[in-house]
Every structure is written in structure tokens, then in C-alpha cells.
């Protein structure tokens, strides 16, 4: 019931924005900025990247809002844009020079050091080592609480594929932590 009301409110805001209300667009950004930022942070493990990509995600969403066909909830549609924005960013970084990659690695290491608990740091590193699809499935299912069906819509794959990516991702995390001396 509450979910339906939220979806109706989102649709109303989208319609208002398409009707010319910039305030409606700002309200949508305010409503989803925190969960989108948290999702992107877990994908990138970097606070500055997460801030930039959160803004880019909303910009992409606003530009493409005419393509929102109401086949899924606005939240699921927005997460899909966030996921694609992150993956595109990660892929474009792969093309950068070794020097730049080294700098990014040091920066990430420095930020990770801010996390006090050693185990948490290892878990975050472990998430970084998952494949893109596994990371997406784990983060969307565990952190963002999306169901398998919603996660499948965000990832653009079948529900079965989501279950496989999620399962393999969790197993891989357990292996990484075992390698580092943690029994989970």
C-alpha cells in the first residue's frame, strides 16, 4: 500500500517535471539522493567518485526521463541508471594510463584506511574484487534491499542470472575473507 503510494508520488513528480515544473525534479533528487549516493559509494568505494557519479546519475536520469515507461518503479529505473553510470565510469577508467590508475589506487587505499575496523576494510576490498555483475547483485540485494525481480530489472538480466551472480558474489567474498584469515 505504502509502496504503491510512493510509486504514485514518483509518477506524479515525473509528470509535473515533464509539464515544466523544475521544482518537481528537485524534489525527486532530494528524495533519492541519499540511497543513490550510498549505492554508488559501495560500487566505487570512493567518496569523491560517489559524489560526482551521484550528480551524473541524476543528470542522466533527468535527460532520459522521457524514456521512463512506467514498466517498473521510478526507484528501480533510477537504480538502473545509477548502475550504468557507475559501470561506464569504471570501464572508461580502465582505458586510463597506468600512472593514473596507480594514483587512483593510492587514493582508494587512503580512503579505505579511514575505516576503523579491519574486517570492514577487508570486506570492502573484497567487494572491489568481485566482477561488475556480482558486485551489482550483492549491493542491490543486500544494501539496497531490492528483490530479485527488481535487481533483475536494474541489471537488465533474468531473475535466474541475478540469483547466480548474487550467490557467486557472496561465495567469492567468503573466499577472499578466508584467504585473509577471517572465518565466515
Amino acid at each position: 500500500m505504502r509502496l504503491n503510494m510512493q510509486m504514485d508520488e514518483d509518477i506524479e513528480l515525473v509528470e509535473s517535471y515533464l509539464g515544466g515544473s523544475d521544482e518537481a525534479m528537485e524534489r525527486l533528487v532530494m528524495k533519492y539522493q541519499k540511497p543513490v549516493y550510498a549505492f554508488i559509494y559501495r560500487m566505487t568505494n570512493n567518496i569523491e567518485d560517489a559524489k560526482d557519479l551521484t550528480q551524473k546519475t541524476f543528470l542522466n536520469a533527468v535527460k532520459g526521463v522521457k524514456g521512463f515507461r512506467r514498466e517498473s518503479s521510478f526507484k528501480t529505473w533510477l537504480y538502473r541508471i545509477a548502475a550504468n553510470t557507475c559501470l561506464n565510469d569504471v570501464r572508461s577508467r580502465r582505458d586510463e594510463t597506468v600512472l593514473e590508475e596507480s594514483f587512483a589506487g593510492n587514493q582508494r587505499g587512503a580512503l579505505s584506511a579511514l575505516i576503523e575496523e579491519e574486517k570492514s576494510r577487508h570486506i570492502k576490498d573484497g567487494i572491489d574484487k568481485l566482477s561488475e555483475r556480482q558486485r551489482l547483485a550483492v549491493i542491490l540485494r543486500v544494501y539496497d534491499g531490492l528483490s530479485c525481480i527488481e535487481t533483475a530489472k536494474v541489471m537488465g538480466c533474468s531473475e535466474g542470472a541475478v540469483k547466480a551472480h548474487y550467490h557467486n558474489g557472496v561465495q567469492r567474498l567468503r573466499e577472499i575473507l578466508k584467504e585473509r584469515g577471517y572465518e565466515v
Binding site: 532530494m30 559501495r42 567518496i47 550528480q55 574486517k119 570492514s120 550483492v138
Partner: peptide, 28 residues
């Protein structure tokens, strides 16, 4: 393991970021 995952908080970028993001998106 999943409980450990959930306990990892995303660092808060601060009120300035939250308060200005909607206007930044609009301007962009």
C-alpha cells in the same frame, strides 16, 4: 557475512552536498 556488509556505512558527504545537489542537477 551479510550482516558485516550491511554494517559498512557509506561516509556522509555532508549537508552542503545534500542541500546543493538538487540545484546543481537543475543548473547542469
Amino acid at each position: 557475512l551479510l550482516s558485516e556488509l550491511i554494517n559498512i556505512e557509506a561516509p556522509d558527504p555532508g549537508e552542503l552536498f545534500w542541500n546543493t545537489l538538487p540545484q546543481k542537477v537543475r543548473k547542469a
